[in-house]
């Protein structure tokens, strides 16, 4: 079994004078929920289009399920489910008919999968209503249903929560987590709602102006975004002893420049400062610090807007 579902090496896409992807080396491990983050036009959809065969790379290679040859890549795409950009549906067909057209195309035997899929995405009661008359949220769910038909091992979802109401967003997140947990489906998901990605992704990739700036696990991101009290005192070693003795915590780090990062008692900084002052220490700097995914992303791309 391949460790990686998808790997790209030096993947580059140029549109006339514009470099949409610049030598991207991306790797998605089996079983990961890979949150793909980038501004509009950063290259997220372009990469997804190259992987799904909708567009052709200028240079570089794509490896899907360990396969790199042209024919093998096409065959590997049978193991994928895809929903890129707008929900791709036949507007004059019902939800059931949309799924049936896709079932026939994929050659999936039996019609049981249609009812199961409709139930899974919560569209079992839509009856004769055609996709044209669906809300954007319903269309998103149906597009996910289409992508799930045939039990894919790898899902590629571009902004799947667009148009969903808050409950829909929660349901989508829970569904993706369930699919990942119970069926072991690897998911590549891009979203503008970074707080939402924060709750679901196990890996992250940050792309900016066609370059993949960083890839990391959720744990690594949490480390990077970890909240702490930034403290600078005249005697760091004595302050450390105060933390151990007065606050009963060893969750701190003394940095080379003498700054202390205290990861405990974040909810009660007044107690910390009081303990330091009452111990006769001179507090030069004292501030809560740390980032969430959004601020980390913003900082990483250099304070950009329009995420």
């Amino acid at each position: 079994m391949n460790e990686y579902v998808l790997r790209t090496r030096g993947l580059t896409k140029r549109y006339k004078n514009q470099l949409a992807l610049d030598s991207v080396d991306l790797a998605i491990r089996q079983g990961a929920i890979y949150g793909f983050i980038g501004q509009n036009g950063a290259g997220k959809s372009t990469l997804m289009k190259l992987v799904t065969g909708l567009a052709f790379q200028t240079s570089g290679t794509i490896e899907l399920f360990g396969e790199t040859g042209e024919k093998e890549l096409i065959r590997s795409r049978k193991r994928m489910g895809v929903a890129i950009e707008t929900p791709a549906l036949y507007p004059s067909m019902t939800a059931r008919e949309n799924l049936e057209a896709h079932r026939l195309q994929r050659g999936i035997p039996g019609k049981d999968c249609i009812a199961r899929t409709l139930e899974l995405v919560g569209l079992e009661g839509t009856g004769r209503k055609t996709a044209r008359n669906f809300s954007l949220g319903m269309k998103q769910r149906l597009a996910l249903g289409v992508a799930l038909l045939g039990d894919p091992e790898f899902l590629i979802l571009d902004e799947p929560t667009n148009g969903l109401d808050p409950m829909g967003v929660v349901e989508m997140r829970e569904l993706l987590q369930k699919l990942n947990r119970e069926r072991g489906i690897t998911i590549l998901i891009s979203s503008h709602i970074l707080s939402e990605l924060d709750l679901v992704a196990t890996y992250y990739g940050i792309i900016h102006r066609g370059k993949l700036l960083e890839q990391m696990t959720a744990k690594e991101l949490r480390e990077k975004c970890r909240h702490y009290l930034h403290i600078k005192v005249d005697e760091p070693q004595r302050a450390a002893a105060v933390f151990e003795r007065e606050l009963a915590t060893s969750e701190y780090e003394v940095m080379a420049d003498g700054v202390i990062r205290l990861y405990a008692h974040l909810e009660n900084p007044a107690r910390v400062s009081r303990a330091l002052v009452e111990s006769g220490l001179e507090v030069e700097q004292f501030m809560p610090t740390g980032e969430d995914l959004e601020s980390y992303f913003t900082a990483r791309i250099g304070g950009g807007k329009h995420v």
């Binding site: 909708l54 994928m80 895809v82 890129i84 707008t86 896709h102």
Partner: peptide, 15 residues
């Protein structure tokens, strides 16, 4: 225009 061509092309069949 409906985007369904994307679905077909990414479905694992040759163009």
């Amino acid at each position: 225009s409906t985007g369904t061509m994307k679905r077909a092309v990414s479905s694992g069949y040759s163009r």
